[in-house]
Design a protein around this nucleic acid. Structure first.
Lengths: 229, 229
DNA sequence: GTACTTTTGTGCTATATAACATAGCTGTAT
DNA sequence: ATACAGCTATGTTATATAGCACAAAAGTAC
Protein backbone atom coordinates (compact mmCIF):
# COMPACT_ATOMS: atom_id res chain seq x y z
CA UNK A 1 0.00 0.00 0.00
CA UNK A 2 2.71 2.33 1.16
CA UNK A 3 4.70 1.90 -2.04
CA UNK A 4 1.72 2.05 -4.34
CA UNK A 5 0.91 5.55 -3.15
CA UNK A 6 4.46 6.72 -3.54
CA UNK A 7 4.59 5.39 -7.07
CA UNK A 8 1.40 7.25 -7.79
CA UNK A 9 3.06 10.38 -6.50
CA UNK A 10 6.19 9.75 -8.48
CA UNK A 11 4.37 9.91 -11.75
CA UNK A 12 3.04 13.34 -10.95
CA UNK A 13 5.40 15.35 -8.89
CA UNK A 14 8.21 17.30 -10.41
CA UNK A 15 10.41 16.53 -7.47
CA UNK A 16 10.68 12.87 -8.33
CA UNK A 17 12.15 13.76 -11.69
CA UNK A 18 14.94 15.67 -10.00
CA UNK A 19 16.24 12.57 -8.22
CA UNK A 20 18.46 9.73 -9.31
CA UNK A 21 17.60 6.12 -8.54
CA UNK A 22 19.68 6.02 -5.39
CA UNK A 23 18.01 9.12 -4.01
CA UNK A 24 14.59 7.75 -4.85
CA UNK A 25 15.40 4.55 -3.04
CA UNK A 26 16.50 6.56 0.00
CA UNK A 27 13.17 8.36 0.00
CA UNK A 28 11.16 5.17 -0.46
CA UNK A 29 12.95 3.61 2.48
CA UNK A 30 12.31 6.55 4.77
CA UNK A 31 8.92 7.80 3.67
CA UNK A 32 5.86 7.08 5.75
CA UNK A 33 2.30 7.51 4.58
CA UNK A 34 -0.26 8.72 7.07
CA UNK A 35 -3.99 9.29 6.84
CA UNK A 36 -5.84 12.14 8.46
CA UNK A 37 -9.53 12.46 9.17
CA UNK A 38 -11.52 15.56 8.45
CA UNK A 39 -10.43 18.41 10.72
CA UNK A 40 -7.65 16.35 12.24
CA UNK A 41 -4.53 18.38 13.08
CA UNK A 42 -1.39 17.50 11.11
CA UNK A 43 1.01 19.68 13.04
CA UNK A 44 0.60 22.44 15.60
CA UNK A 45 2.10 25.85 16.21
CA UNK A 46 5.16 25.44 18.43
CA UNK A 47 5.90 21.85 17.38
CA UNK A 48 9.41 20.93 16.39
CA UNK A 49 9.49 20.32 12.62
CA UNK A 50 10.80 16.90 11.68
CA UNK A 51 9.30 15.85 8.36
CA UNK A 52 8.86 17.19 4.91
CA UNK A 53 5.25 16.52 3.98
CA UNK A 54 3.65 15.95 0.63
CA UNK A 55 -0.11 15.92 0.35
CA UNK A 56 -1.12 12.92 -1.76
CA UNK A 57 -4.89 13.14 -1.44
CA UNK A 58 -7.33 15.57 0.15
CA UNK A 59 -7.08 19.22 1.14
CA UNK A 60 -5.10 20.84 3.93
CA UNK A 61 -5.20 24.28 5.48
CA UNK A 62 -2.24 26.08 7.02
CA UNK A 63 -3.44 28.56 9.61
CA UNK A 64 -2.46 30.65 12.57
CA UNK A 65 -4.32 31.47 15.74
CA UNK A 66 -4.41 35.23 16.13
CA UNK A 67 -4.74 37.42 19.20
CA UNK A 68 -8.45 37.12 19.92
CA UNK A 69 -8.78 33.37 19.32
CA UNK A 70 -9.59 34.32 15.74
CA UNK A 71 -7.76 32.08 13.32
CA UNK A 72 -6.36 33.14 9.98
CA UNK A 73 -5.89 30.71 7.11
CA UNK A 74 -2.47 31.47 5.63
CA UNK A 75 -2.48 29.08 2.70
CA UNK A 76 -4.18 25.96 1.42
CA UNK A 77 -2.48 22.86 0.11
CA UNK A 78 -3.65 20.69 -2.76
CA UNK A 79 -2.53 17.20 -3.72
CA UNK A 80 1.08 16.68 -4.80
CA UNK A 81 2.08 19.82 -3.04
CA UNK A 82 4.92 19.88 -0.52
CA UNK A 83 4.59 21.71 2.78
CA UNK A 84 5.81 21.89 6.36
CA UNK A 85 9.46 22.48 5.39
CA UNK A 86 9.76 26.19 6.10
CA UNK A 87 10.22 25.92 9.86
CA UNK A 88 12.94 23.29 9.55
CA UNK A 89 14.90 25.32 7.01
CA UNK A 90 14.53 28.44 9.14
CA UNK A 91 15.63 26.40 12.19
CA UNK A 92 12.50 27.49 14.02
CA UNK A 93 9.53 25.71 15.52
CA UNK A 94 6.35 25.77 13.49
CA UNK A 95 4.80 29.22 13.43
CA UNK A 96 1.64 27.87 11.86
CA UNK A 97 -0.63 24.88 12.30
CA UNK A 98 -1.93 22.48 9.65
CA UNK A 99 -5.16 20.51 9.60
CA UNK A 100 -6.94 18.30 7.11
CA UNK A 101 -9.94 19.96 5.53
CA UNK A 102 -11.24 16.68 4.29
CA UNK A 103 -9.94 13.09 4.64
CA UNK A 104 -6.34 13.38 3.50
CA UNK A 105 -3.29 11.28 2.86
CA UNK A 106 0.13 12.71 3.59
CA UNK A 107 3.56 11.34 2.82
CA UNK A 108 6.16 12.19 5.48
CA UNK A 109 9.88 12.24 4.76
CA UNK A 110 12.38 13.05 7.53
CA UNK A 111 13.95 16.43 6.82
CA UNK A 112 17.31 14.92 7.75
CA UNK A 113 17.00 12.63 4.76
CA UNK A 114 15.98 15.55 2.58
CA UNK A 115 19.01 17.53 3.74
CA UNK A 116 21.23 14.57 2.93
CA UNK A 117 19.92 14.53 -0.62
CA UNK A 118 20.01 18.32 -0.97
CA UNK A 119 23.77 18.37 -0.32
CA UNK A 120 24.45 16.74 -3.64
CA UNK A 121 21.44 17.72 -5.68
CA UNK A 122 21.38 21.29 -6.90
CA UNK A 123 18.13 20.76 -8.80
CA UNK A 124 16.34 19.94 -5.57
CA UNK A 125 17.89 23.00 -3.91
CA UNK A 126 16.56 25.02 -6.78
CA UNK A 127 13.13 23.48 -6.32
CA UNK A 128 12.95 24.60 -2.70
CA UNK A 129 14.43 28.02 -3.42
CA UNK A 130 11.84 28.57 -6.09
CA UNK A 131 8.98 27.25 -3.97
CA UNK A 132 9.93 29.44 -1.04
CA UNK A 133 10.33 32.45 -3.31
CA UNK A 134 6.92 31.96 -4.87
CA UNK A 135 5.31 31.52 -1.46
CA UNK A 136 7.02 34.62 -0.12
CA UNK A 137 5.65 36.60 -3.04
CA UNK A 138 2.17 35.27 -2.35
CA UNK A 139 2.53 36.17 1.32
CA UNK A 140 3.58 39.73 0.45
CA UNK A 141 0.63 40.15 -1.91
CA UNK A 142 -1.67 38.71 0.70
CA UNK A 143 -0.51 41.09 3.39
CA UNK A 144 -1.45 44.08 1.28
CA UNK A 145 -4.70 42.57 0.04
CA UNK A 146 -5.94 41.54 3.45
CA UNK A 147 -5.11 44.88 5.01
CA UNK A 148 -6.18 47.27 2.29
CA UNK A 149 -9.12 45.71 0.46
CA UNK A 150 -12.65 46.02 1.74
CA UNK A 151 -14.80 43.06 2.73
CA UNK A 152 -16.24 42.46 -0.74
CA UNK A 153 -12.81 42.54 -2.31
CA UNK A 154 -11.36 40.18 0.26
CA UNK A 155 -14.13 37.63 -0.07
CA UNK A 156 -14.07 37.81 -3.86
CA UNK A 157 -10.33 37.30 -3.74
CA UNK A 158 -10.74 34.19 -1.59
CA UNK A 159 -13.25 32.76 -4.03
CA UNK A 160 -10.93 33.45 -6.95
CA UNK A 161 -8.12 31.82 -5.01
CA UNK A 162 -10.25 28.71 -4.42
CA UNK A 163 -11.17 28.55 -8.09
CA UNK A 164 -7.54 28.83 -9.11
CA UNK A 165 -6.38 26.29 -6.54
CA UNK A 166 -9.04 23.62 -6.73
CA UNK A 167 -10.80 24.30 -9.99
CA UNK A 168 -14.45 24.20 -11.04
CA UNK A 169 -16.65 21.20 -11.75
CA UNK A 170 -18.55 20.99 -15.03
CA UNK A 171 -21.49 22.82 -13.47
CA UNK A 172 -19.18 25.67 -12.35
CA UNK A 173 -19.24 24.84 -8.65
CA UNK A 174 -16.01 25.36 -6.78
CA UNK A 175 -14.31 22.06 -6.11
CA UNK A 176 -14.06 22.52 -2.35
CA UNK A 177 -16.79 22.82 0.24
CA UNK A 178 -15.92 25.19 3.05
CA UNK A 179 -17.89 26.20 6.11
CA UNK A 180 -18.75 29.89 6.15
CA UNK A 181 -16.43 30.19 9.09
CA UNK A 182 -13.46 28.89 7.10
CA UNK A 183 -14.31 31.23 4.28
CA UNK A 184 -14.31 34.03 6.86
CA UNK A 185 -10.95 32.93 8.27
CA UNK A 186 -9.54 32.89 4.78
CA UNK A 187 -10.81 36.41 4.07
CA UNK A 188 -10.07 38.00 7.44
CA UNK A 189 -13.62 38.80 8.45
CA UNK A 190 -16.28 37.54 10.86
CA UNK A 191 -18.54 34.65 9.95
CA UNK A 192 -21.59 36.92 9.87
CA UNK A 193 -19.94 39.20 7.38
CA UNK A 194 -18.87 36.30 5.21
CA UNK A 195 -22.48 35.09 5.13
CA UNK A 196 -23.84 38.55 4.45
CA UNK A 197 -21.36 39.33 1.70
CA UNK A 198 -21.93 35.93 0.07
CA UNK A 199 -25.66 36.58 -0.10
CA UNK A 200 -24.95 40.02 -1.57
CA UNK A 201 -22.99 38.26 -4.31
CA UNK A 202 -26.02 35.99 -4.87
CA UNK A 203 -28.30 39.04 -5.20
CA UNK A 204 -25.87 40.54 -7.71
CA UNK A 205 -25.88 37.26 -9.65
CA UNK A 206 -22.13 36.77 -9.27
CA UNK A 207 -22.55 33.39 -7.60
CA UNK A 208 -25.32 30.96 -6.62
CA UNK A 209 -25.43 29.05 -3.36
CA UNK A 210 -26.68 25.60 -2.41
CA UNK A 211 -25.51 24.85 1.08
CA UNK A 212 -21.74 24.81 0.90
CA UNK A 213 -21.78 24.49 -2.85
CA UNK A 214 -20.70 27.74 -4.47
CA UNK A 215 -21.54 28.03 -8.13
CA UNK A 216 -19.75 30.71 -10.09
CA UNK A 217 -22.14 32.61 -12.35
CA UNK A 218 -20.05 35.59 -13.40
CA UNK A 219 -16.37 34.87 -12.93
CA UNK A 220 -15.28 38.02 -14.69
CA UNK A 221 -17.27 40.21 -12.35
CA UNK A 222 -15.92 38.27 -9.38
CA UNK A 223 -12.36 38.89 -10.52
CA UNK A 224 -13.16 42.53 -11.01
CA UNK A 225 -14.52 42.87 -7.47
CA UNK A 226 -11.44 41.09 -6.18
CA UNK A 227 -9.12 43.39 -8.07
CA UNK A 228 -10.72 46.71 -7.25
CA UNK A 229 -11.01 45.90 -3.57
CA UNK B 1 36.92 52.56 -3.68
CA UNK B 2 34.85 49.79 -5.16
CA UNK B 3 37.11 47.11 -3.72
CA UNK B 4 37.53 48.78 -0.37
CA UNK B 5 33.82 48.62 0.24
CA UNK B 6 33.61 45.00 -0.79
CA UNK B 7 36.45 44.11 1.51
CA UNK B 8 34.67 45.89 4.30
CA UNK B 9 31.64 43.83 3.52
CA UNK B 10 33.65 40.64 3.36
CA UNK B 11 34.75 41.00 6.93
CA UNK B 12 31.18 41.14 8.11
CA UNK B 13 28.89 39.15 5.93
CA UNK B 14 28.41 35.45 6.44
CA UNK B 15 28.07 34.90 2.73
CA UNK B 16 31.66 35.73 2.01
CA UNK B 17 32.77 32.95 4.32
CA UNK B 18 30.81 30.44 2.26
CA UNK B 19 32.84 31.12 -0.87
CA UNK B 20 36.20 29.91 -2.06
CA UNK B 21 38.77 32.27 -3.53
CA UNK B 22 37.69 31.64 -7.11
CA UNK B 23 34.08 32.38 -6.33
CA UNK B 24 35.08 35.54 -4.47
CA UNK B 25 37.07 36.69 -7.43
CA UNK B 26 34.09 36.06 -9.69
CA UNK B 27 31.97 38.26 -7.44
CA UNK B 28 34.58 40.99 -7.23
CA UNK B 29 34.82 41.10 -11.00
CA UNK B 30 31.06 41.35 -11.48
CA UNK B 31 29.93 43.38 -8.50
CA UNK B 32 29.03 47.02 -8.94
CA UNK B 33 28.63 49.48 -6.12
CA UNK B 34 25.96 52.11 -6.45
CA UNK B 35 24.92 55.03 -4.28
CA UNK B 36 21.36 56.13 -3.68
CA UNK B 37 20.12 59.42 -2.33
CA UNK B 38 17.46 59.73 0.32
CA UNK B 39 14.10 58.55 -1.03
CA UNK B 40 15.61 57.46 -4.33
CA UNK B 41 13.99 54.34 -5.80
CA UNK B 42 16.25 51.28 -6.07
CA UNK B 43 13.85 49.09 -8.00
CA UNK B 44 10.17 49.31 -8.89
CA UNK B 45 7.20 46.99 -8.90
CA UNK B 46 7.01 45.29 -12.28
CA UNK B 47 10.72 45.62 -13.08
CA UNK B 48 12.60 42.60 -14.32
CA UNK B 49 14.96 41.42 -11.57
CA UNK B 50 18.59 41.24 -12.64
CA UNK B 51 20.82 41.73 -9.63
CA UNK B 52 21.25 40.39 -6.19
CA UNK B 53 21.64 43.39 -3.93
CA UNK B 54 23.47 43.78 -0.68
CA UNK B 55 23.01 46.92 1.36
CA UNK B 56 26.42 48.14 2.48
CA UNK B 57 25.45 51.42 4.12
CA UNK B 58 22.16 53.16 4.89
CA UNK B 59 18.62 51.94 5.27
CA UNK B 60 16.20 50.63 2.65
CA UNK B 61 12.48 50.00 2.69
CA UNK B 62 10.69 47.32 0.65
CA UNK B 63 7.12 48.36 0.02
CA UNK B 64 4.04 47.81 -2.09
CA UNK B 65 1.49 50.22 -3.41
CA UNK B 66 -1.94 49.04 -2.37
CA UNK B 67 -5.34 49.61 -3.89
CA UNK B 68 -6.06 53.16 -2.70
CA UNK B 69 -2.64 54.62 -3.43
CA UNK B 70 -1.86 53.67 0.15
CA UNK B 71 1.54 52.09 0.41
CA UNK B 72 2.51 49.31 2.77
CA UNK B 73 6.06 48.78 3.97
CA UNK B 74 6.71 45.03 3.76
CA UNK B 75 10.18 44.87 5.27
CA UNK B 76 13.17 47.02 6.00
CA UNK B 77 16.78 46.27 5.14
CA UNK B 78 19.80 47.05 7.26
CA UNK B 79 23.47 47.07 6.23
CA UNK B 80 25.06 43.79 5.18
CA UNK B 81 21.67 42.37 4.38
CA UNK B 82 20.87 40.82 1.02
CA UNK B 83 17.67 41.62 -0.82
CA UNK B 84 15.99 41.78 -4.23
CA UNK B 85 16.58 38.10 -5.01
CA UNK B 86 13.08 36.68 -4.40
CA UNK B 87 11.59 37.72 -7.74
CA UNK B 88 14.47 36.26 -9.74
CA UNK B 89 14.29 32.93 -7.93
CA UNK B 90 10.52 32.83 -8.36
CA UNK B 91 10.98 33.73 -12.05
CA UNK B 92 8.63 36.67 -11.62
CA UNK B 93 8.92 40.41 -11.99
CA UNK B 94 9.32 42.40 -8.81
CA UNK B 95 6.10 42.42 -6.80
CA UNK B 96 7.50 45.07 -4.47
CA UNK B 97 9.45 48.29 -4.79
CA UNK B 98 12.54 49.35 -2.88
CA UNK B 99 13.72 52.83 -1.96
CA UNK B 100 16.53 54.29 0.11
CA UNK B 101 15.36 55.69 3.41
CA UNK B 102 18.55 57.58 3.89
CA UNK B 103 21.67 57.93 1.72
CA UNK B 104 22.59 54.33 0.98
CA UNK B 105 25.23 52.25 -0.72
CA UNK B 106 24.24 49.07 -2.46
CA UNK B 107 26.36 46.35 -4.00
CA UNK B 108 24.82 44.76 -7.10
CA UNK B 109 25.76 41.30 -8.30
CA UNK B 110 24.18 39.84 -11.45
CA UNK B 111 21.86 36.99 -10.46
CA UNK B 112 23.32 35.02 -13.37
CA UNK B 113 26.66 35.05 -11.62
CA UNK B 114 25.03 34.07 -8.36
CA UNK B 115 23.29 31.15 -10.05
CA UNK B 116 26.61 30.06 -11.51
CA UNK B 117 28.15 29.93 -8.04
CA UNK B 118 25.06 28.32 -6.47
CA UNK B 119 25.36 25.33 -8.79
CA UNK B 120 28.50 24.16 -7.04
CA UNK B 121 28.10 25.65 -3.62
CA UNK B 122 25.62 23.94 -1.36
CA UNK B 123 26.40 26.26 1.55
CA UNK B 124 25.25 29.23 -0.46
CA UNK B 125 22.08 27.35 -1.47
CA UNK B 126 21.49 26.74 2.20
CA UNK B 127 22.01 30.41 2.94
CA UNK B 128 19.26 31.42 0.52
CA UNK B 129 16.94 28.62 1.60
CA UNK B 130 17.30 29.70 5.18
CA UNK B 131 16.94 33.40 4.40
CA UNK B 132 13.79 32.80 2.37
CA UNK B 133 12.36 30.53 5.06
CA UNK B 134 12.96 33.09 7.79
CA UNK B 135 11.42 35.84 5.66
CA UNK B 136 8.40 33.69 4.86
CA UNK B 137 7.88 33.10 8.57
CA UNK B 138 8.08 36.83 9.23
CA UNK B 139 5.59 37.47 6.44
CA UNK B 140 3.13 34.93 7.88
CA UNK B 141 3.42 36.48 11.34
CA UNK B 142 2.99 39.90 9.86
CA UNK B 143 -0.16 38.97 7.99
CA UNK B 144 -1.86 37.93 11.20
CA UNK B 145 -0.52 40.83 13.23
CA UNK B 146 -1.50 43.48 10.73
CA UNK B 147 -4.99 42.09 10.27
CA UNK B 148 -5.88 41.14 13.82
CA UNK B 149 -4.16 43.59 16.16
CA UNK B 150 -5.64 46.96 16.94
CA UNK B 151 -3.93 50.22 16.16
CA UNK B 152 -2.00 50.45 19.42
CA UNK B 153 -0.71 46.90 19.05
CA UNK B 154 0.31 47.46 15.45
CA UNK B 155 2.20 50.66 16.17
CA UNK B 156 3.89 49.18 19.24
CA UNK B 157 4.90 46.21 17.11
CA UNK B 158 6.46 48.48 14.51
CA UNK B 159 8.44 50.29 17.17
CA UNK B 160 9.66 46.99 18.63
CA UNK B 161 10.59 45.89 15.11
CA UNK B 162 12.61 49.08 14.59
CA UNK B 163 14.36 48.62 17.92
CA UNK B 164 15.25 45.03 17.07
CA UNK B 165 16.39 45.91 13.54
CA UNK B 166 18.30 49.12 14.04
CA UNK B 167 18.98 49.21 17.75
CA UNK B 168 18.97 51.96 20.33
CA UNK B 169 21.53 54.70 20.94
CA UNK B 170 22.97 55.21 24.43
CA UNK B 171 20.15 57.60 25.26
CA UNK B 172 17.53 54.98 24.23
CA UNK B 173 16.45 56.69 21.02
CA UNK B 174 15.65 54.41 18.12
CA UNK B 175 18.45 54.43 15.60
CA UNK B 176 16.28 55.39 12.64
CA UNK B 177 14.32 58.54 12.01
CA UNK B 178 11.08 57.94 10.17
CA UNK B 179 8.42 60.35 9.04
CA UNK B 180 5.08 59.73 10.73
CA UNK B 181 3.79 58.70 7.34
CA UNK B 182 6.36 55.91 7.05
CA UNK B 183 5.57 54.74 10.54
CA UNK B 184 1.92 54.63 9.47
CA UNK B 185 2.75 52.68 6.30
CA UNK B 186 4.71 50.22 8.39
CA UNK B 187 1.81 49.76 10.79
CA UNK B 188 -1.06 49.75 8.32
CA UNK B 189 -2.83 52.87 9.50
CA UNK B 190 -3.35 56.47 8.46
CA UNK B 191 -0.81 59.14 9.27
CA UNK B 192 -3.24 60.90 11.61
CA UNK B 193 -3.72 57.75 13.62
CA UNK B 194 0.00 57.09 13.80
CA UNK B 195 0.46 60.61 15.21
CA UNK B 196 -2.42 60.25 17.63
CA UNK B 197 -1.33 56.85 18.90
CA UNK B 198 2.26 58.01 19.26
CA UNK B 199 1.16 60.88 21.47
CA UNK B 200 -0.96 58.48 23.50
CA UNK B 201 2.21 56.47 24.11
CA UNK B 202 3.90 59.69 25.23
CA UNK B 203 1.08 60.40 27.69
CA UNK B 204 1.41 56.87 29.01
CA UNK B 205 5.15 57.40 29.42
CA UNK B 206 6.03 54.51 27.11
CA UNK B 207 8.05 56.73 24.80
CA UNK B 208 9.17 60.34 24.53
CA UNK B 209 9.24 62.30 21.29
CA UNK B 210 11.52 65.00 19.97
CA UNK B 211 10.66 65.54 16.35
CA UNK B 212 11.46 62.27 14.64
CA UNK B 213 13.54 61.07 17.53
CA UNK B 214 11.70 58.36 19.40
CA UNK B 215 13.06 57.67 22.87
CA UNK B 216 12.03 54.42 24.48
CA UNK B 217 11.07 54.96 28.12
CA UNK B 218 9.37 51.68 28.97
CA UNK B 219 10.39 48.96 26.54
CA UNK B 220 8.71 46.23 28.54
CA UNK B 221 5.36 47.97 28.42
CA UNK B 222 5.83 48.60 24.71
CA UNK B 223 6.44 44.91 24.06
CA UNK B 224 3.42 44.09 26.14
CA UNK B 225 1.20 46.40 24.12
CA UNK B 226 2.62 44.89 20.95
CA UNK B 227 1.95 41.37 22.14
CA UNK B 228 -1.56 41.82 23.42
CA UNK B 229 -2.71 43.68 20.33
C1' DG C 1 -38.68 10.12 15.41
C1' DT C 2 -36.97 13.13 19.01
C1' DA C 3 -33.58 15.68 21.19
C1' DC C 4 -29.42 18.14 20.65
C1' DT C 5 -25.58 20.47 18.56
C1' DT C 6 -23.74 22.95 14.89
C1' DT C 7 -24.17 25.85 11.08
C1' DT C 8 -26.46 29.41 8.57
C1' DG C 9 -29.01 33.59 8.18
C1' DT C 10 -30.62 38.37 9.56
C1' DG C 11 -31.35 42.47 12.07
C1' DC C 12 -29.60 45.88 15.35
C1' DT C 13 -26.02 48.22 17.94
C1' DA C 14 -21.43 49.45 19.16
C1' DT C 15 -16.95 50.79 17.98
C1' DA C 16 -12.51 51.21 15.80
C1' DT C 17 -10.57 53.56 12.41
C1' DA C 18 -10.63 56.30 8.17
C1' DA C 19 -11.60 60.73 6.20
C1' DC C 20 -11.79 65.44 6.36
C1' DA C 21 -10.78 70.12 7.90
C1' DT C 22 -7.80 73.23 9.78
C1' DA C 23 -4.02 75.13 12.26
C1' DG C 24 0.57 75.28 14.02
C1' DC C 25 5.31 74.00 13.39
C1' DT C 26 9.87 73.22 11.00
C1' DG C 27 13.10 73.60 7.79
C1' DT C 28 14.72 75.62 3.46
C1' DA C 29 15.42 78.77 -0.18
C1' DT C 30 15.60 83.43 -1.60
C1' DA D 1 13.64 88.42 7.57
C1' DT D 2 10.02 86.44 4.45
C1' DA D 3 7.73 83.24 1.95
C1' DC D 4 6.77 78.67 0.97
C1' DA D 5 6.41 73.64 1.17
C1' DG D 6 5.99 69.78 3.77
C1' DC D 7 5.32 67.71 8.09
C1' DT D 8 2.98 67.35 12.53
C1' DA D 9 -0.90 67.85 15.51
C1' DT D 10 -5.81 67.70 16.90
C1' DG D 11 -10.77 67.97 16.75
C1' DT D 12 -15.00 66.37 14.30
C1' DT D 13 -17.59 63.46 11.43
C1' DA D 14 -18.51 59.45 8.62
C1' DT D 15 -18.36 54.64 7.80
C1' DA D 16 -16.91 49.93 7.54
C1' DT D 17 -16.92 46.19 10.15
C1' DA D 18 -17.20 43.71 14.56
C1' DG D 19 -20.22 42.12 18.16
C1' DC D 20 -24.35 40.45 19.87
C1' DA D 21 -28.90 38.40 19.98
C1' DC D 22 -31.97 35.39 18.15
C1' DA D 23 -34.26 32.39 14.82
C1' DA D 24 -34.30 28.99 11.28
C1' DA D 25 -32.18 25.12 9.08
C1' DA D 26 -29.23 21.25 8.77
C1' DG D 27 -26.75 17.66 10.46
C1' DT D 28 -25.90 14.04 14.30
C1' DA D 29 -26.75 10.98 18.04
C1' DC D 30 -29.67 8.07 20.58
Amino acid sequence: MHHEVLDFASSLTDVWRLLNEKERELLRKNAVVQHFKKNQPIYCEGDQPVDLMCLLRGKVKIFKEGVGGRSQIIRMIKPIQYFAYRAYFAQEKYLTAAAAFEPSTVCLIPMQVVMEILKNNFSLCQFFIKQLSVDLGIADERTVNLTQKHIRGRLAESLVFLIDSYGLEEDSTINIYLAREDLANLSNMTTSNAIRTLSNFVTEKVIALDGRKIKIIDEEKLRKISKLG
